[in-house]
Every structure is written in C-alpha cells, then in structure tokens.
Lab assay of single mutants.
Amino acid sequence: RRKSKRKPPPKKKMTGTLETQFTCPFCNHEKSCDVKMDRARNTGVISCTVCLEEFQTPITYLSEPVDVYSDWIDACE
C-alpha cells in the first residue's frame, strides 16, 4: 500500500502594511513626515510637519511612499 502524500500548506502572504509616516532626517521627530503621491504629475512630495523641511522626487506608477522617503534619505547623504 502506498502512503498518500500531503500537499504542503499554502504560504501566507505578507499582510503587513508599509509605513506612511516617517522620521525626519533633519529634526529627528518620529512620524512627523507625510508623503503626498501626485500620480497625475508623477511626483512624490514628502514634508515634515515640525521643521517644515520638504522634498520632491519623480515617481512611477509602482512607487510607494517608502520609496519617496528613501529617495529623500539618499539625497541627504
């Protein structure tokens, strides 16, 4: 008699959501930077609500707010 092989359980999909508020690289306030994605103009704007620092970068249809933040961090270095 042959043993029946069980199929492995399906893999769980990533359910965690990406951050939309970030720590400002200038004033170091946590969750003080908000990202606005202007898909019509293909630009992402991130601004700090505390020190009013602002950064704008081009985006694509695949871009997420975390991509705008990482572009800002890269531009600071």
Rank of each mutant, 00 (worst) to 15 (best):
E77G: 15
K5T: 15
V35L: 04
C33G: 02
T49K: 15
P8W: 03
K12Y: 03
E53D: 03
T15F: 02
M14T: 05
F22H: 08
S70W: 07
E19D: 04
P10Q: 15
I46A: 09
P10W: 00
K7T: 15
D74N: 11
T43F: 12
R2G: 10
T57W: 05
V68A: 04
D38M: 03
F26E: 05
V50T: 11
E53Q: 14
V45M: 15
P9A: 12
Y61R: 15
E53S: 05
N28H: 12
Q21C: 09
C24P: 01
E30Q: 15
E64H: 12
Q56A: 09
F26W: 05
M14C: 06
C33L: 08
M14K: 07
V50D: 10
D34V: 11
P58Y: 04
T60Q: 08
E19I: 03
H29K: 15
T15K: 11
C76W: 13
N42T: 04
E64D: 11
A40I: 08
F26S: 09
T43E: 10
V50S: 12
Y69A: 06
Q21K: 10
D38L: 04
G44M: 02
T57S: 15
T15E: 05
S32R: 10
R41S: 10
K31I: 02
A75I: 03
C51I: 00
V35W: 02
R6M: 13
T15L: 10
T57M: 10
P8A: 14
T49I: 01
C76S: 08
V35N: 02
E30F: 04
R1S: 05
C27G: 03
P10Y: 03
S4L: 08
Q21R: 12
D71F: 07
R6P: 15
D74Q: 13
I73E: 05
P65E: 07
C27E: 01
Q56D: 07
C27P: 00
C48M: 00
K11R: 07
S63M: 13
I73P: 01
S32F: 07
Y69M: 11
E19S: 12
T43V: 09
R41V: 13
D38Q: 05
K11M: 08
K3S: 12
H29C: 09
H29Y: 04
E30L: 07
V68M: 05
K13Y: 05
Q21F: 04
L18Y: 07
L18R: 13
T20N: 09
P25Q: 12
N28W: 04
F26M: 10
C27S: 01
G16F: 03
K12D: 07
I73T: 13
T49L: 08
T57P: 03
L18N: 15
K3V: 05
Q21P: 03
I46R: 02
S4E: 13
S70D: 12
P8E: 13
S63A: 11
E30H: 07
G16N: 11
T17H: 09
S70F: 05
E64S: 11
K31V: 02
D38W: 03
C76T: 12
S70T: 12
P9H: 08
L18E: 11
F22K: 10
I73V: 13
N28E: 13
N28P: 04
S4A: 08
C24N: 00
R2S: 10
E64A: 14
T43R: 07
M14V: 09
T43C: 02
M14P: 10
V68I: 07
T23R: 15
V66W: 05
I46K: 01
I46P: 01
C24F: 00
K5L: 03
T57C: 04
S47L: 10
R2L: 07
C48Q: 00
F26C: 12
T20W: 07
P25K: 03
T43N: 14
L18T: 10
Q21Y: 01
I59V: 07
M37H: 00
V66Q: 08
P10F: 04
M37E: 02
K36S: 03
G44R: 01
Q21N: 09
D74P: 05
K13I: 06
R41P: 03
C48H: 00
C24Q: 01
L62V: 13
E64Q: 14
T49R: 15
P10A: 12
C51W: 00
D34A: 10
K3Y: 08
S32Y: 01
K13S: 09
W72T: 02
C76A: 12
L18H: 14
V50G: 08
V68P: 01
V50W: 14
L52H: 07
Q56R: 14
V50L: 14
I46T: 04
K7Q: 13
T15W: 01
G44L: 01
E30N: 08
A75L: 10
D38R: 04
C33R: 02
R39V: 10
C51S: 01
C51T: 00
D67W: 00
C33K: 01
S63G: 03
V68F: 00
K5R: 09
T17S: 11
V68S: 00
K36I: 03
P58L: 07
T49W: 08
L52P: 09
N42K: 05
V68N: 00
P8R: 05
T15D: 01
C51N: 00
K31A: 06
V45W: 09
S4P: 04
S47K: 09
Y61G: 14
C33E: 02
L18F: 05
M14D: 15
C51K: 00
K3H: 14
T17D: 14
S63L: 03
C33S: 06
V68T: 01
P9L: 13
K11Y: 03
M37S: 00
T15P: 07
S32P: 11
W72Y: 04
S63I: 02
K31M: 09
G44I: 00
D74G: 12
V66F: 09
G16P: 11
F22V: 02
E19G: 04
T15N: 08
P65D: 08
K13V: 11
K12V: 07
T23W: 08
T60E: 15
K5C: 02
T23V: 10
Y69W: 11
D74R: 14
L18W: 05
K12H: 07
T57D: 03
A40Q: 07
V50F: 09
E53A: 08
K3M: 05
K13T: 14
F26A: 10
D34M: 05
E19H: 05
C76K: 09
Q56V: 12
T17N: 04
P65I: 03
Q56F: 04
S70M: 07
S47Y: 12
T49P: 08
T60S: 13
L52N: 08
T23Q: 07
